[in-house]
Design a protein around this nucleic acid. Structure first.
Length: 211
DNA sequence: GGTAAGATCAGC
DNA sequence: CTGATCTTACCT
């Protein structure tokens, strides 16, 4: 994946990553669901739901760096979730990888996720995706545009499967966020059982409420 | 130094 | 719907 294609706004970057292939530690998977996240108030894409909304911190530093870096964080103390940073250097934005279809290394993915897990559920949900691909907190900051990296992303434009360009996608509100819950910044390829069902956060205000 | 909250998931 | 479990951020 060319980092230039991600150095844009998070929504464009999200569409670039949709349909791309992520390869990590013996498993490759096609990304079928992502969410765009912006940055602080003063920036070009203010986003109250983003980890970078309150400015640069140790944890979210990767979001402020150059595009194409892996931003991993621990969710609810249990799961690891992975983003790919986007936007120009110095401007915070990222795309959360929410679901993927395992293409190769299915056996390894089953070992990590559990033998009883249905194939469609192997990498459904950001926590499960990282688990299936063996992504950990140590991968924070990795350049996924570098083919030598342990975690890399191959974009649709580089892929030999020309069919991926013609895939239809849909979009809607992001899952689980308690702020900016109506912003339609989740994107997914249509017709994939791997895409997670939409669940609005119980902490989010009523649909249509201000901001 | 204490604690509440969170971009989740699995199991009732 | 709830509990698990850890890091960060913010308060006293």
């Amino acid at each position: 994946m060319n980092a230039e294609l991600l150095s844009t706004d998070p929504v464009s970057a999200a569409r670039q990553l949709l349909g791309a292939v992520i390869i990590a530690r013996g498993v490759s998977a096609r990304i079928v669901e992502v969410e765009a996240y912006g940055g602080p108030l003063g920036g070009p894409w203010p986003d109250p739901a983003s980890h970078s909304y309150r400015g640069l911190r140790l944890r979210n530093a990767v979001m402020f760096g150059p595009a194409g870096r892996l931003y991993t964080y621990r969710s609810y103390g249990i799961h690891i979730c992975a983003n790919v940073s986007c936007g120009p250097e110095g401007v915070a934005a990222a795309v959360l990888l929410r679901a993927a279809v395992i293409q190769a290394g299915t056996e390894l993915a089953h070992t990590r996720r559990g033998v009883t897990v249905r194939s469609a559920a192997l990498a459904r949900g950001p926590g499960n995706l990282c688990s299936a691909l063996g992504i950990t907190m140590d991968d924070n900051g990795i350049d996924v545009c570098d083919s030598r990296s342990a975690v890399m992303v191959v974009g649709v434009e580089d892929s030999s499967s020309s069919t991926s360009r013609s895939d239809m996608y849909q979009h809607g509100p992001r899952v689980g966020v308690s702020a900016a819950a109506d912003r339609p910044w989740r994107f997914w390829l249509t017709g994939h059982p791997e895409v997670s069902g939409y669940r609005r956060s119980s902490r989010a205000p009523q649909p249509g409420a201000s901001t």
